[in-house]
């Protein structure tokens, strides 16, 4: 996931409870959108606006969970 998110940080220093706001991850609302577009390309999915709007994105775990939901939903459709 770190690779997908292109965070450029050491895997060992990141866990699911790391805040997206932490200096290590350092996301802001615009860079989050940028990363979601990269995720879409990587998994060949399209994330709905509603999913992003409804997601309570606070830490790395919540971001991973949202992406997993979308990827799984796509898998279920196929």
């Amino acid at each position: 996931m770190i690779g997908v998110l292109e965070l450029g940080v050491d895997r060992d220093r990141l866990d699911e409870t790391t805040s997206l706001y932490s200096p290590m991850v350092g996301l802001d609302s615009l860079s989050l959108l940028h990363i979601l577009v990269q995720v879409e390309k990587r998994f060949d999915i399209e994330i709905d606006d509603e999913d992003v709007m409804a997601a309570e994105l606070s830490d790395v775990g919540s971001l991973v969970a949202m992406i997993r939901r979308v990827v799984d939903a796509k898998g279920a459709d196929e």
Binding site: L30, L36, D48
Partner: peptide
């Protein structure tokens, strides 16, 4: 772009202001 500075450690959630489909 370069990320915004961390100005508020109290913020808990990240709410994208732009709809992804527009961005």
């Amino acid at each position: 772009p370069r990320s915004a500075p961390r100005v508020n450690g109290e913020r808990k959630t990240l709410n994208p202001q732009l709809p992804l489909s527009m961005y």
